[in-house]
Amino acid sequence: MAKKRKSTEEELRELHRYTRSLIEASPDMMVTFDRDSLIMDVNQETVDMTGVSREKLIGSPFKQYFTDPETAHQAAMLVFEQEKVKDLELELELIDHKGDHIPVALNASVYRDAAGKVVGAFAIIRDISKRKKAIEEVQRQQGEILELSTPALRVWEGVVLVPLIGTIDTRRAQQVMENLLERIVSTESEVAILDIAGVPTMDTKVAQHLVITAQAAAMLGAKTIITGVSPSSAQTMTKLGLDLSRLTCKGSLSAGIREALDMLSLKVVESNGE
């Protein structure tokens, strides 16, 4: 009997060593804390990240390792309130051993004793700086694509053309507007052509931006010609009930260019083969 009991103890110890080594080997920080958000236990990653020894970490307030302790404390309290939190990104930033600020996400749940009483919370704190960087990179690239997708071309002395292709959202409409006005000034163009033949649908917000663009261009001293207006775009623009009297519209881009040259008192003539 004694021998068997010892082996059960041995088994339990083995199991404990096994789970403990899993926790210690985790690439994420793992922390348990009590209702006062005082740290009860940590894994090796937590020690490595914070650069604070296990002995010092245990018993210290959870919140003190973050750039914004108040938010960290609230996050800890939220765990007890909701019993479980998932991917909480309360703008938490951990201060690492080099003093750098590391953005982290918090996954946590409460744990109970044998009687079912909540005794603490178990939290996994994940370093999301790489994810953050990737998102920022995507956003930067989106910005670049945006810029490339809305060129402002000088087609003639005094005429600048912006061909719009693809779906236009408010952000892009704003960018188009700013680009066009900027180009009108830098190329000293008296006429601007906005070709919207390549725009499948136009909502009222975008139409509004086009009208604002034309009004702003007029204020600078330039005229705007809109070409390639589809039936549905035309309806959108009419429904807006804005002052469209300053807008010159032409069916095709070539008709628009002809109109632009006309405004500048220029004419394209046949050379009669000479």
Binding site: M177, E178, L181, E182, I184, V185, I212, Q215, A216, A217, M219, L220, G221
Partner: peptide, 16 residues
Amino acid sequence: IRPEVAVTLVQMGRGL
């Protein structure tokens, strides 16, 4: 008139 000034005035519902 600067482009950004023109945009701002138009957006405010103000013209010249």
